Simulated scan of single mutants.
Amino acid sequence: MTIPLIIDTDTAQDDAIALLFGLLDPAADLRAITIVAGNVGFEQQVANALLTVAAAGRSDERLVHRGCVRPMMREWTSAEGVHGDGIGGLVGPEDAVNGRVGEVSDEHAVDALIRLCAEAPGEVTVVAIGPLTNIATAVVKDRSFPATVKSLVIMGGSNNGRGNTTPSAEFNFYADPEAARIVFEAGFDDVLVLPWEPVTVRDGILTRTEYESITSTGAPLQAFFRAACDKTLEVCEAVGLAGSTHPDSMTVAAVLHEDLMRRTGRYRVEIETASALTLGHSVMAWPKFGLAANARVIEEVDHGRYLDLLGDLLATPGLPTLEEISNNASRGG
């Protein structure tokens, strides 16, 4: 039995690999890809998503929806210093505008989220791996939206640990803290969070040895993976991490393969929106404090199992080569 999914993403680097899990894993029934302002320029994100769909051999489907192009109340925050264009220069934003790497749906991402979940109430899992602007906007537009979602799975925040954008805040929550606060207060029946600290920096890092191992046979998706992730590997190593970080694909993989999650806990998650010092910080209160829990938080992931799943994904046969999809984009068809 497959799992109906919508992936809400700011497509760059590991977001693209997360999309590949949704597009190619036999457990996934991916119904839409919704784009939110985040990592890199908005149209670049759209192009990156379309190219990822093409790399998965599904470019005949109009899965990609443009969503909110800026945070709810703030200016856009870029992560281009970490990701570059997020796809290794394979495609430019003009290719998305001109339809050269696939077709974008005419339906806005927020409307798609509301419609698809309403059409199958209690069946669709929404996986949010970027800032939560689209999800919060759907909540504001249709207050019944949370009740129609089976599970909301979020990559974001830190479990009372360090951030990656400021000392206290992870990028997705920092980029739109008001949206994150709305989402955690919206009353979704089931919210699952994979945080940056400690899970990503302990379980979601590929060492250079692991990175080289899963990209060693020349399969088409291995080359795609390297194009998307090489820059981030270099940046991560330069700041003292043990390798490249992969929280987004680990999040989607955990939805599709629950055995990845070794341990979760119930927490009350709240987001700081006022303090300049701790803007976007996720306060996660454990049961000791007697507060009503509003989320499950992943506390440990099986790194070896994730590495095996990722290696199998990247070895998928019969897909377009990097040269073929790049040439198609260059020719406009």
Score class of each variant (00 low, 15 high):
Arg305Gly: 08
Glu323Leu: 12
Glu323Gly: 14
Gly304Thr: 07
Ile271Glu: 01
Ala315His: 07
Glu258Asp: 14
Leu277Asn: 03
Ala274Met: 10
Leu279Cys: 01
Val283Glu: 02
Pro287Phe: 07
Ala276Phe: 04
His281Trp: 02
Ser282Thr: 12
Glu272Trp: 07
Arg268Asp: 09
Ala276Thr: 04
Asp302Ile: 10
Leu314Pro: 00
Gly304Tyr: 02
Ser282Ala: 15
Ala274Leu: 10
Thr264Met: 14
Met261Lys: 13
Ala276Asp: 09
Pro320Met: 04
Ala285Asn: 03
Val269Arg: 04
Asn294Cys: 13
Ser282Gly: 09
Leu260Arg: 06
Glu324Leu: 03
Asn294Val: 14
Ala293Cys: 09
Met284Ser: 08
Ala292Ser: 02
Ile298Asn: 09
Ile271Trp: 04
Glu324Trp: 05
Tyr267Lys: 01
Ile271Cys: 08
Asn328Gln: 15
Thr278Leu: 02
His257Glu: 06
Trp286Leu: 11
Val297Phe: 13
Arg296Ile: 01
Tyr306Pro: 09
Arg305Gln: 12
Ser326Met: 09
Thr264Trp: 11
Gly311Lys: 06
Leu291His: 00
Met284Ala: 10
Leu279Pro: 00
His303Gln: 15
Ser282Tyr: 02
Val301Glu: 11
Ser326Ala: 15
Leu322Asn: 09
Asp259Lys: 13
Asp302Pro: 13
Gly280Trp: 06
Leu291Gly: 01
Asp312Lys: 11
Tyr306Ser: 05
Gly311Glu: 04
Val301Met: 15
Leu319Met: 05
Glu272Ser: 12
Leu277Lys: 05
Ala274Trp: 10
Pro320Glu: 05
Asn327Leu: 15
Tyr267Ser: 10
Gly265Asp: 08
Leu310Thr: 10
Thr321Ser: 15
Met261Ser: 10
Ile271Pro: 02
Tyr306Leu: 12
Thr278Tyr: 01
Met284Asn: 13
Val297Asp: 08
Gly265Tyr: 03
Asn327Val: 00
Gly265Arg: 13
Met284His: 02
Ser282Glu: 08
Ala295Asn: 08
Pro317Met: 09
Glu299Cys: 13
Ala295Phe: 13
Leu319Ile: 09
Met284Gln: 09
Ser275Asp: 01
Thr321Cys: 01
Met284Glu: 09
Leu277Trp: 00
Glu300Thr: 12
Pro287Ala: 08
Val301Phe: 11
Arg263Lys: 15
Leu313Pro: 03
Ser282Leu: 08
Leu309Cys: 06
Leu279Gly: 02
Gly318Val: 03
Tyr267Trp: 12
Pro317Asp: 07
Asn327Ile: 02
Asp308Gln: 07
Ile271Gln: 02
Thr278Arg: 05
Pro320Ser: 03
